[in-house]
């Protein structure tokens, strides 16, 4: 609660291992507040939550070690090179020098960034930055990765390449918790929840939600719920 305003009001849900979970809601619905509680940087006023098996009240530091986080606003350091960013974040996550070096080589190879490995990240196109940022969030093999509007503004092809990376991570057992304003992306998720004024008004697979609201796409599900 902020003052007398309940940003997130008695929400209850579970996300399974390896699941791609879409966390949707209108601007100001309480998504960011909920996400901050789950990543251990804000405490709920009441209630319980465990992330990767750890209690958000008592084991926030353990949570931070076991999750990855990527947001559109803060991702990488523009004035460090690609390699420097990877080394920096690897260090923060406590990876050994040897491990960082190995990881860094694999990652640069996979993303096709060999030619720009020593370029400043600030000079890269937005789509490349976002893919790199996602890979960096996975550097320490977290159990869960939180993605806050990861694909805003990028072209449709890059957006899809990004989702292929998400599928790959989930396929390898990483749980993915993602927010987006693109309703076609909501359909890529195994399950989605829709928040309205601090409450979760719907939670299910995209298919079942569309059946429940008798519409053809997630955009219409969203409009029906959020417009009331």
């Amino acid at each position: 609660m902020f003052g007398d305003f309940a940003a997130v009001n008695a929400i209850t849900f579970e996300v399974e291992k390896g699941e791609i979970f879409g966390f949707l809601g209108a601007n100001g619905a309480g998504k960011t507040t909920a996400m901050k509680m789950l990543i251990g940087i804000s405490n709920p006023t009441s209630g319980k939550a465990t992330v990767a098996g750890f209690n958000v009240f008592t084991h926030a530091e353990d949570i931070k070690k076991n999750i990855g986080y990527m947001s559109q606003k803060f991702a990488l350091y523009d004035d460090l090179t690609v390699t420097e960013n990877i080394t920096f974040f690897g260090g923060i996550y406590g990876l050994s020098r040897k491990r960082i070096k190995e990881k860094s080589e694999i990652l640069i190879e996979e993303l096709g960034l060999k030619n720009v490995a020593n370029k400043l990240v600030g000079a890269l196109p937005l789509g490349w930055k976002q893919k790199l940022s996602f890979s960096v969030a996975l550097l320490h093999d977290p159990k869960i990765v939180f993605l806050d509007e990861p694909t805003g503004g990028v072209d449709p092809i890059t957006r899809r390449q990004f989702w292929e990376m998400i599928y790959k991570a989930a396929n390898q057992g990483t749980t993915v918790f993602v927010t987006t304003h693109y309703m076609d992306e909501a359909e890529y998720c195994d399950r989605v929840s829709i928040m309205v004024s601090g409450k979760i008004e719907a939670i299910d697979t995209p298919k079942k939600l569309k059946e429940q609201f008798k519409v053809n796409n997630m955009n219409d599900v969203f409009l029906k719920l959020a417009r009331g």
Partner: peptide
């Protein structure tokens, strides 16, 4: 409308 939810 960048970054704006579908309703708005």
């Amino acid at each position: 409308t960048t970054g704006v939810d579908p309703v708005s």
